[in-house]
């Protein structure tokens, strides 16, 4: 997979955040807690119109919870705190009523989930499932118009014979085809923000590139903001121009994709980048890994969440590291950052 060539320089990290009308999505100090543990803490980010932002991290780092909290779709046992503002919505999405959230979801913000095989209702025809999102928000005049629009959307996401697909049931389609249907549903009402949670992880490699291209083209055509969640650095590099790295429920580093991949500052990012390449190996000739594994909830060290797996950790790391950087969108939280320009082969 190739890197996008349109974002060559890392000199303007704020990119298009300051477009007319402010950011599309503005998340401030978002937290998610269960009855016992804090699962996501202090996540802040902004995404402007037409901007594509990645959220990277291992399983259990809090990426999906962050996305669900933005949508107000957390499991009922979890609570969100902080603030989520969306352009076009009058209310703060954290703490908004179910009625307000239902009006916002599918219209201003849409989500594509990881597992296409189970994301669609097996007993409803595909076309009706696409049409439904337009009928619910009354963005079309009626059933007939919705059905026609559904077929057009299915054609948009590159499905051959869209009229036949509209009449099919989900089990008659492949995983890649189903994910394209889910994308068609997500894009139907031209949302201001699209959230994709590992949209290609469950797909064959050959289909992945196709779906990623459809996601990129879909948001570009609508000048929508994109929050793209993945554990795969290569995928994020293909789609996004900015990226946030999450570990242990907090954002440990953020910045332009090139900067994060070539000159990471946080020790976790450094390990993640080293682990994702097969070109360098350690002294024994094995692929690089981060030692240890992600601790369970409530088992993260006090202070820096990465301290117990970090080779550079000292007693200073028992204190929570402050955010170092010009904004929430560029910076890192590490007491012993990798010196800029060194540490990792570029």
């Amino acid at each position: 997979m190739s890197r996008p060539s349109d974002s060559a320089g890392s000199g303007d990290p704020t990119d298009s955040v300051d477009t007319v009308g402010g950011p599309v999505l503005s998340v401030e100090r978002l937290g998610v807690t269960s009855s016992r543990y804090s699962l996501v803490e202090n996540v802040s980010l902004q995404i402007g119109a037409g901007e594509r932002v990645g959220l990277i991290g291992e399983s259990g780092s809090g990426k999906t919870l962050t996305a669900l909290a933005i949508l107000g779709l957390l499991p009922e046992t979890l609570r969100a705190s902080g603030s989520v503002r969306l352009r076009g919505a009058d209310v703060d999405l954290v703490g908004a009523s179910e009625h307000d959230l239902a009006d916002i979801r599918g219209r201003l913000v849409s989500m594509v989930f990881q597992e296409p095989m189970t994301a669609l209702n097996p007993t409803m025809r595909v076309g009706r499932q696409v049409a439904e999102v337009m009928l619910v928000h009354e963005t079309v005049a009626g059933r007939q118009e919705a059905d026609a629009a559904a077929v057009a959307l299915l054609a948009d996401v590159g499905l051959p014979e869209p009229a036949a697909v509209a009449r099919a049931y989900p089990h008659q389609l492949s995983g890649g085809q189903r994910q394209r249907v889910v994308l068609a549903i997500a894009l139907a009402n031209n949302p201001a923000l699209l959230i994709c949670d590992e949209p290609t992880t469950a797909l064959d490699v050959t289909v992945q590139a196709l779906v990623l291209d459809l996601v990129t083209r879909g948001v570009t055509a609508r000048d929508a903001a994109l929050l793209f969640i993945s554990h795969d650095l290569a995928v994020v590099a293909t789609v996004c121009r900015r990226v946030l790295v999450m570990y242990g429920g907090v954002v440990v580093e953020a910045g332009p994709v090139e900067q994060i991949l070539t000159a990471p500052r946080h020790r976790y990012t450094e390990g993640l980048v080293a682990a994702s390449t097969i070109e360098t190996t350690d002294a024994q000739g094995r692929l690089r890994t981060i030692r240890g594994s992600v601790p369970g909830h409530g088992r993260y060290p006090v202070g820096c969440v990465f301290a117990n797996r970090c080779d550079a950790a000292t007693s200073a790391c028992e204190v929570e590291p402050p955010w170092v950087g010009e904004s929430v969108d560029v910076g890192y939280a590490c007491h012993h950052p990798v010196s800029s320009g060194g540490g990792v082969d570029a």
Partner: peptide, 12 residues
């Protein structure tokens, strides 16, 4: 998952 999809579409 399809119930979550339906909720994400804006169904109560």
């Amino acid at each position: 998952d399809y119930i979550r999809t339906a909720r994400a579409k804006g169904l109560t």
